[in-house]
Structures are given as C-alpha cells and as structure tokens.
C-alpha cells in the first residue's frame, strides 16, 4: 500500500460516507409498506409533511436505521481498537466476550434492578460496566502487557460467552423475561426494539469514543508493532491503552444496551477495509466507523426484507456472514504460522 496522504484519506472517507448515505436511503425505502426515495426525501426535508408515509419514515424507519448506523459504527470502532491493542486481527468485541459482559450486566439490571430501585435508564450504565469488567477479565487472563495469543484470545472469549449466555438466560427467567422478544434481543441481537430516545445518547457515546480513539490512530499503528516499539517512538503507552480500553468499553456498552449481542461486525468491517485500503489506522479507524455504520444498516435492511411479512434478527445476518469469514481468517493465520 502506498503511504497515506491527506488527499487519499479524504477520498476514501468521502466514498464511504456516500456508501453510508446510499445504505440509509435503501434502509428507509425498504419495508412492509412501499415508500419511494422521493417520498423519503420529502418526509425528511419538509417538517410540515404529514400523512402515513411521512410518519412511517420519520417515526419508524428513521430511528431504526439511525440505530443500525450508530451500533454498527460503535462495534466496528471497538473491533479496530481491539485488533491493534491485542495485536491480532481476530479480535472483535463479540468474539472476545466484551459484548457478552455488557449484555449480562444489562440483563442483570433489567431482571433484578427493579428490586434495587434501578430503572431501565441504568441499563446502558450497567452495560458499560459489564464491558469494562469483561475487558478486565480478558487482561487478567492475558496479563496487562501480554500479547494475546490467538488461542488464549479465542478460549477466553468462547468460555466467557458461554458463561454469559447461560447467566443471561438464568437471570431473564428469574426476572420473568423468558418469554417475548426481550431475551431474544439480548442473545441474538436485533434492532427491532430501538427507539428514537436512545439515539441521542448512543450518538453521544460514539462521539466520546471517537474523541478518545481518533487522536490515538497513529499510536494504534505503533502499538500493533509492540508496546516497546510504540513507547520507544514516543507513544505514552499506558495512557493510550487505558484511554482506548475505556473508549471501547463505552461504545460496546452503548451498542449492546440498544441492540443486544450483534456479533462479528467489528471483525468483518475492519478486515475488509484493511484488505482494500491497508492497515494504517489514521485511515482504517475513521473508515471502519463509516463502513461499520453502512454495513449494519445494509444488514438490518436485509433482515427486514429477506422473508416477506417476517423479520430476521440482524444478529443472525451478521453471524451468517461473519462466522465463515472468521474461520477463513483463522485458517489463514494458521497457515502463516501465526497461531501458537
């Protein structure tokens, strides 16, 4: 890959932003009742526009598409950061069990929180704490300065995810949430329950995560080559690591509390973009945020359109795409001798 220059950065980000706009328009057009792009445009542009079509676009589809974009951006951002920090392209908040930790804490508040006087407003906070806790667990196993081997990484994630899923089912049964969509939401991941009120908070969370991570994009390049290399080239490694882990816990907590466990977004999107545009994080990080948003909007649109009259959880779509890709990546790492 040729070295990064600002012109290339802006060209790539512009193209991805355009892709995101296309995905959003498609997401607003597709659905049970037919809406044309021009009707979408009118509904969005003209606040006075009334009628069922404008209502569908503004009150139903826009919050949903917005949630998909924000959740996708958050998960993809977390994936990029984890991959550089753990120096392993297989890292992803779902695979590592960080999302599982967030979901477990969220469900704990939902099922037991009422007794402790906690409302649903406490769910995102708990999810953030859960993500932070799962991150702490991961580094507890790996060691704070350790380069995580693929084996440790996968085993920790698999075991923790199995534990978290079981605990979620248990807690949900205790709290009487075993029926209906809520448990489904947490375990498979769906945007069906996304509401407009959540979006501003999630956008704030994403902005805070980006404010932490974007200035550290170059540091991520150097961290990927090892902490001593980064330190030696002037990176404040401990500070950078803490800030990045805080940012990832924040965005994962935010995304999971809106959508539950949507897997593999943080794996697929950065991987594809790295193949296309190279591993320089000054480009890869913002590109992953835009690409992740576009990807999840597209997946959610597919989830709504694939089966007529019914809706798939978007987590099923990302897992169907992500699972095979993950295995392919694993195989390639193995053939390169990167699996210890």
């Amino acid at each position: 890959m040729t070295p990064l220059r600002p012109a290339r950065l802006f060209a790539v980000l512009g193209a991805l932003a355009a892709l995101l706009v296309v995905a959003i328009v498609a997401g607003l057009v597709v659905g049970p009742s037919a809406v044309t792009p021009s009707e979408v445009w009118t509904a969005l542009r003209d606040p006075a526009a009334a009628g069922p079509t404008a209502d569908i676009v503004r009150r139903i589809r826009l919050p949903r598409v917005g949630a998909a974009a924000l959740v996708g951006a958050c998960l993809s951002l977390a994936g990029v950061c984890f991959q550089a920090l753990l120096r392993n392209p297989l890292a992803d908040p779902f695979v590592l069990g960080i999302s599982g930790g967030a979901a477990l804490a969220g469900v704990a508040v939902l099922s037991l929180g009422a007794a402790a006087g906690l409302g649903t407003g406490a769910v995102p906070v708990a999810a953030f704490a859960g993500a932070l806790g799962a991150t702490a667990l991961l580094f507890g196993v790996a060691g704070w300065r350790g380069r995580l081997s693929a084996t440790t990484l996968l085993l920790t994630g698999v075991v923790f995810n199995a534990f978290a899923s079981a605990a979620i089912v248990f807690l949900a049964s205790l709290g009487g949430m075993a029926e209906g969509t809520s448990i489904f939401l947490w375990l498979i991941g769906t945007l069906a329950a996304a509401r407009a009120e959540m979006l501003a908070a999630l956008a704030g969370v994403l902005a805070a995560g980006l404010a932490c991570a974007l200035p550290l994009a170059r540091a991520l390049d150097l961290l990927a080559l090892g902490e001593e290399t980064a330190e030696q080239l002037g990176v404040a490694v401990e500070r950078a690591k803490r800030l990045l882990l805080l940012a990832t816990a924040l965005v994962v907590g935010g995304a999971v509390s809106v959508s539950g466990l949507i897997g593999f977004v943080g794996l697929i999107v950065p991987h594809a973009l790295r193949l296309l545009f190279g591993p320089d994080h000054r480009l890869l990080l913002p590109a992953s945020v835009l690409g992740g948003a576009a990807f999840l909007v597209a997946c959610d649109t597919a989830a709504r359109a694939l089966l007529p009259g019914r809706e798939l959880p978007v987590g099923a779509i990302t897992a169907l795409v992500g699972g095979p890709l993950f295995l392919l990546l694993l195989r390639r790492q193995g053939s390169r001798g990167l699996l210890p």
Partner: peptide, 8 residues
C-alpha cells in the same frame, strides 16, 4: 518485531 498486519 512481530507484525500482525500487512504494513508495507
């Protein structure tokens, strides 16, 4: 030095 990504 271990390189996890295909930097040029």
């Amino acid at each position: 030095t271990h390189f996890p990504f295909p930097f040029s």
